[in-house]
Design a protein around this nucleic acid. Structure first.
Length: 222
DNA sequence: ACCCAGGGTCATA
DNA sequence: TATGACCATGGG
C-alpha cells in the first residue's frame, strides 16, 4: 500500500499555492461544460479544447440534448481542434445519453459518490481520470484526480516508486489530505498549472522534468 | 521535422 | 494483468 504523509502532501500544496496562486479550477460556465471539457481534454492540450468548446457554444450545442441531436459528422467538425474528433464525438454522445437517461445532471446529485463514480466509469469513453474530473469538479465530491503530471512529479520527488495503480495513488492523496473538496480542486489545478505553464522553458525541472524554477523539486541548470 | 498534450478502448498474450 | 496499436489536432 503506497502511502503519502500528510505533512508532505500539505507542504507541497502550500508551495504550489504560494507560487501560482489559486487556480479556480475547473474553468467552465456550467456543470455540463465540465463534463464536455473533461472528455475533450483527454490527451489533448487545453488550448485546443477551448477552440472546440467555443465552436460548441457558437452552435448553441452545450446541452446533452443539443449534442445528441447533432449528426456525428457535424459534431466531429465542431470539436475537431481537440483531436481524436471521431472518437470524442462518440464519447460525448455516450455521456450525453447517460445524462439524459439519468434525468439530467441535477438528478444525479442525489447519487452517492461511489455510485456516481461507478456509473460514470460504465459510460463508454469515461475512464478513471475523466470520471474523477467530473465527480470532483461538476459534482463537488471529495475524489482526488490522478493524472500523468501527478505521477511524474511525485515519482521524481521519490514519493512514489512508479507503477502504482490509479486507485492506489488516489487513495494515498485522499488519506493524506482527508476529504476536502476545495483543496482537491485546487491541488489538481496547481499540479497541472505547474507542469503546463512553463514546460517549454529550459532548463527543465530535475524532478518533474517540465518546469523552470520549479517550486516543488530541484532545479536543473542549463 | 519532431515532440507533446489535463486518456481510453480494444485486441492480444 | 499487462503491453501495444490506435485515435488526430495545434503549438513549441
Amino acid at each position: 500500500m503506497t502511502r503519502l504523509h500528510a505533512n508532505t502532501a500539505q507542504s507541497i500544496y502550500r508551495r504550489l499555492l504560494d507560487t501560482y496562486g489559486p487556480q479556480g479550477w475547473w474553468p467552465a460556465d456550467s456543470a455540463f461544460e465540465i463534463v464536455v471539457g473533461a472528455v475533450l481534454t483527454q490527451n489533448a492540450a487545453w488550448t485546443n479544447v477551448e477552440y472546440a468548446l467555443t465552436h460548441l457554444r457558437e452552435a448553441d450545442a452545450l446541452s446533452p440534448e443539443a449534442i445528441l441531436a447533432l449528426p456525428d459528422e457535424r459534431l466531429g467538425a465542431l470539436i475537431r481542434p481537440s483531436g481524436y474528433f471521431n472518437v470524442k464525438a462518440r464519447r460525448l454522445k455516450a455521456v450525453c445519453g447517460f445524462l439524459v437517461d439519468a434525468g439530467g445532471i441535477e438528478a444525479l446529485r442525489e447519487c452517492g459518490t461511489g455510485d456516481l463514480r461507478a456509473a460514470l466509469l460504465g459510460v463508454h469513453g469515461i475512464g478513471r481520470e475523466t470520471a474523477d474530473d467530473i465527480v470532483l469538479y461538476a459534482f463537488h465530491r471529495p475524489v482526488f484526480v490522478i493524472d500523468a503530471y501527478t505521477r511524474r512529479i511525485f515519482e521524481r520527488l521519490g514519493l512514489f516508486v512508479g507503477g502504482e495503480t490509479y486507485e492506489a495513488l488516489r487513495g494515498a492523496f485522499e488519506s493524506a489530505l482527508g476529504p476536502d473538496v476545495p483543496v482537491y480542486q485546487e491541488y489538481h489545478g496547481l499540479i497541472v498549472e505547474h507542469c503546463k505553464a512553463v514546460c517549454a522553458v529550459r532548463p527543465r525541472c530535475a524532478d518533474c522534468s517540465l518546469r523552470y524554477r520549479c517550486p516543488v523539486g530541484r532545479n536543473e541548470r542549463a
